[in-house]
Design a protein around this nucleic acid. Structure first.
Lengths: 180, 180
DNA sequence: CGATCGGTTGATATGAATCAACGTGCGTGG
DNA sequence: CCACGCACGTTGATTCATATCAACCGATCG
């Protein structure tokens, strides 16, 4: 049971003909595939986006420290439940949202998750994704992702430079991408 | 923690403007939302497709009977893992597959699951879904579902009558819809 | 009987894919 | 230091899959 200490990764499903669906992005603090803890093997694979630093069982240790009464199995269920509700959101985005809505959703989703792990509240965060990754996560082509994000930039919703993304107009972005 | 004894249901996510994404279909033997066991509340709702019969904790009891050593939490993790990998498959279908592929996938998916719980191996199973449900599960419109399924019937892949679906040409259906 | 629901079918519109070309930055090897 | 190749993003033209709009039909039910 590995935990991601630093760097970004993602895991994905690869179809027989090479098409790829990214299922989730892994940020520092996430455990690599809660599934492998339960299943012997899973169809999904994991790939690094940046250099990574990993450690074993860190979350379990912390968990034990914090509340020694609670079992590891429960923490695992917790992680699985997280993964499941994120995946449900993704499915809803894929099945029922336009390209604009999906891109806005992803930007906000990642912003929320990175914000959760840093003390400083900033509308600017590291963004190591290529447009191909965004496309594979959102069920689009990279060309269309390019058009959509260019439009977002031209409209002043986001700024993108040097591997960082800045949310300039969160209000509008949420109007587009926040559905629940 | 409720278990579905008889009948079909589904759970779904409803967007603010009414759009709906069906996340999974519940068949006899499934537990209603493994999520509620972990989370206090979840954004998804459950709805019946047919008359239902429910019971509490049956799976846990069985589990305890079968192997008293194993904890309930682990069984829960098991159920969550199932839900998660099904959801991952769904996401891949939604993000990366054509309408034909998605419909074939759903038919085979449901066939597999119903087959798993009946002794008799039959290519014919109860099918209480309206086309609107299929559409909401697969990210399509009911009109397009109608066209696609009509074509499947005309091509002799399936037959559909009296609330039952028969798989006539499993080979071809799998060629279309089985990607992993 | 009329009303409603679910499925079907045709015509048309549209969002996103595809195909193709180009620019730019960057690393690498000459 | 330069030249080349390559990865990535951008943009335009065109095509295609699916949505939308609308009409109709049969079954079911009050």
């Amino acid at each position: 049971m590995l935990v991601l200490c630093d760097g970004w990764a993602f895991h994905y499903l690869q179809l027989a003909d090479g098409r790829r669906q990214i299922l989730s992005f892994l940020l520092p603090g996430d455990l690599l595939s809660p599934l492998v803890a339960v299943r012997e093997r899973s169809a999904s694979s994991t790939m690094a986006l940046t250099d990574l630093q990993l450690t074993g069982l860190r979350r379990a240790e912390i968990c034990n420290e914090l509340r020694a009464d609670t079992g590891v199995a429960l923490a695992l269920a917790e992680a699985l439940a997280d993964a499941l509700s994120n995946m449900a959101e993704l499915a809803a985005a894929l099945g029922r949202c336009s390209a604009e809505e999906r891109v806005a959703y992803l930007i906000l989703h990642l912003a929320r998750r990175t914000a959760a792990q840093s003390i400083v509240r900033d509308e600017r965060y590291r963004f190591p994704l290529r447009q191909q990754h965004i496309a594979d996560a959102l069920g689009l082509t990279s060309v269309h992702v390019s058009r959509t994000m260019r439009q977002f930039q031209d409209r002043g919703l986001i700024r993108l430079s040097g591997g960082f993304l800045e949310i300039c107009d969160r209000r509008e972005l949420e109007r587009i991408g926040l559905w629940l």
